[in-house]
Design a protein around this nucleic acid. Sequence first.
DNA 1: CAGGATCCTGCTGGATACTG
DNA 2: CAGTATCCAGCAGGATCCTG
Lengths: 127, 127
Amino acid sequence: MWPLSQKPGWAAATAIWSTRMSLARLDNKWTAMVVIALGRGDGLRFGDLRAVVQGISAKVLTETLRDLERDGIVARHEYAEMPPRVEYELTALGRTLHVPLQALGRWAEKHTAEVLEAREAYDAGRR
Amino acid sequence: MWPLSQKPGWAAATAIWSTRMSLARLDNKWTAMVVIALGRGDGLRFGDLRAVVQGISAKVLTETLRDLERDGIVARHEYAEMPPRVEYELTALGRTLHVPLQALGRWAEKHTAEVLEAREAYDAGRR
DNA sequence: CAGGATCCTGCTGGATACTG
DNA sequence: CAGTATCCAGCAGGATCCTG
């Protein structure tokens, strides 16, 4: 195996990753969880999302949803009622994104123990 | 469809997501790209990684690699040579993580155009 | 209830210089 | 080459208060 840096086209092809991965909105640490949450039920309310995505503040949830709406991943439905009701759901594009993200969520659930063990072993070695 | 907040077990089951997704190291925006890069070749050097994961600083790459090593996802091989050489590769656990992350990368590549269009449309409507 | 506005802080992560 | 150490700016994101 030769150094990647000498592989023709590699650097150029991978240079745009950062841009594309940003488009996937992975730069916002909450995005993935919001999309996964939305992928489960249809018509989730703001409050439901806050409860499900534990730890997120109202402000950040609002911003995250705005960004996702702008990117065509989330659709916002506002009902002129009293009290006001707003529901969010994934668009068709959003549902395609939900697939790999859900796979990632499953990975996390499945391998949590292994990661924790590795972490303890590492820390034990350092001590 | 009833509100999620009333679904028994849901809140409890999803409350730990944040923890588990953190374990997946999605809170670091560079992690995904580093793992994807490592998943391609075996024995990537520090400098190669810096070149491939465009825009990352040496400091942050170091920290990211340390965290991944601690979590048992990346293995570090140091060679006592002059000049020094250090190679990184995914562990068995790391390769299982690589699968969903690569899928995510493919999503980003495939749907970049759609996202950009949605973004323009959204901004046009706002104007 | 859903969020806009504002203020403020901590940590992320960049720049630079130095070592084995 | 592959880091480490230090310093520091910027911004993510939390707390609080307010509105339709």
